[in-house]
Amino acid sequence: MVSWRLVGTEVSAVGAAALSMPLRLIVRREHFDPVAPHPTPAILVHGFLGDPTNFLVLRSHLAAAGVPNFATFAYPPRIDYQRLAHRLGQEIELFRSETGTAEVDLVGHSLGGLVARYLVEMDQGSPVRRLVTLGAPYFASPLPRHELAIFGSHDPFIPPPHPRHWPHAWGGTTLGRVVVVPDCGHWGLLYHSTVRDEVTAFLRTSDGKRHRERGPLALEAAS
């Protein structure tokens, strides 16, 4: 049963997203510091009807943790994610040519996560090091090996997937995993402290290490 507290939290998250939209005029779309502790830039992809300002809280948390390099991919409301993925790939290549960075990380919310995942799945030679999705739609195939997929336990739009769709279903060593955040909805994923901590730890982890060693079949619930 959905609690009034959860409803209030989700309404607050939607309100925060709406109120932050005017700040787009002062938010830097791109920033790159090659000598940062964790220099790999994070490309942020908002969801349908979303806005780059949706990631302000997450950006602040990442920057404080030594992940200060960002770029945003903004798009008008549309649902043809295949075409958006193609555009995202072009923007990534432009960003790489301008900054000289070899790899990028992708962080997408809702439809933005689907766009980012499609790009990774369709372009096996893509320069994407890590993929993070927040409440992103999914299909029948397992999630990519290096995807951290976070879902809200009470998301009315995108429920958590069955374990057969998790990254471990590919077999072998995988950096990716699924996290289900209790008492969290769809928009709340953008502001939940557990989400911020999980994303930060995942992006800060070196390529030679797994984020965490846990049983692959246990539904991971973060409090």
Rank of each mutant, 00 (worst) to 15 (best):
P161F: 03
P34C: 14
G47Y: 01
W166V: 00
S141M: 05
S223T: 14
L219A: 11
G112P: 05
I92P: 07
R196D: 00
H31V: 10
Y191M: 08
W187G: 06
H61V: 11
A74F: 04
F95E: 05
R87I: 04
M1C: 01
A221I: 10
A149D: 00
L6V: 13
R214A: 03
V45F: 10
D105V: 03
G113Y: 01
W166I: 00
A64E: 12
Y75E: 04
D80Q: 14
A65G: 12
I26M: 12
L148I: 09
Y118V: 07
I158R: 12
G100V: 03
D155A: 14
L114D: 04
D155G: 09
L131A: 09
S110E: 12
F73R: 10
P52L: 07
W166C: 01
L6E: 13
E198T: 06
A221W: 07
S3Q: 08
S206Q: 14
T205S: 11
T40H: 11
V35T: 12
L114G: 05
P39I: 05
I158F: 04
P76E: 10
L203Q: 00
L106I: 09
P163S: 06
H154N: 12
R5Q: 14
S3A: 07
A71Y: 04
H109P: 00
L6R: 11
G89D: 13
P161C: 06
V120Q: 02
H154A: 13
M122V: 07
V180S: 10
R78G: 14
V45G: 11
V181N: 04
P37H: 13
H38W: 08
Q124T: 15
R24H: 10
V181E: 00
S3W: 05
V179F: 06
P216D: 12
E30K: 08
V2F: 06
R59H: 05
Y81W: 11
F151L: 00
E98Y: 02
E93S: 15
D123A: 15
V7D: 06
T9G: 07
E103G: 06
V107N: 03
A116I: 02
A63C: 09
F70V: 03
G100Y: 06
P41M: 02
S97E: 12
E121L: 13
K209T: 11
D207K: 12
R96E: 10
V2W: 02
S12T: 13
A221F: 14
E198D: 02
E10L: 09
G135F: 04
S3L: 07
L189Y: 00
R210N: 13
Y191R: 12
H168I: 09
A201P: 06
T53E: 08
V2G: 07
G208Y: 07
H154R: 13
I158Q: 02
G152M: 05
E91H: 14
H168N: 13
A140I: 11
S223F: 11
D123R: 15
E198W: 01
L23K: 15
H109G: 05
S20R: 15
W170T: 10
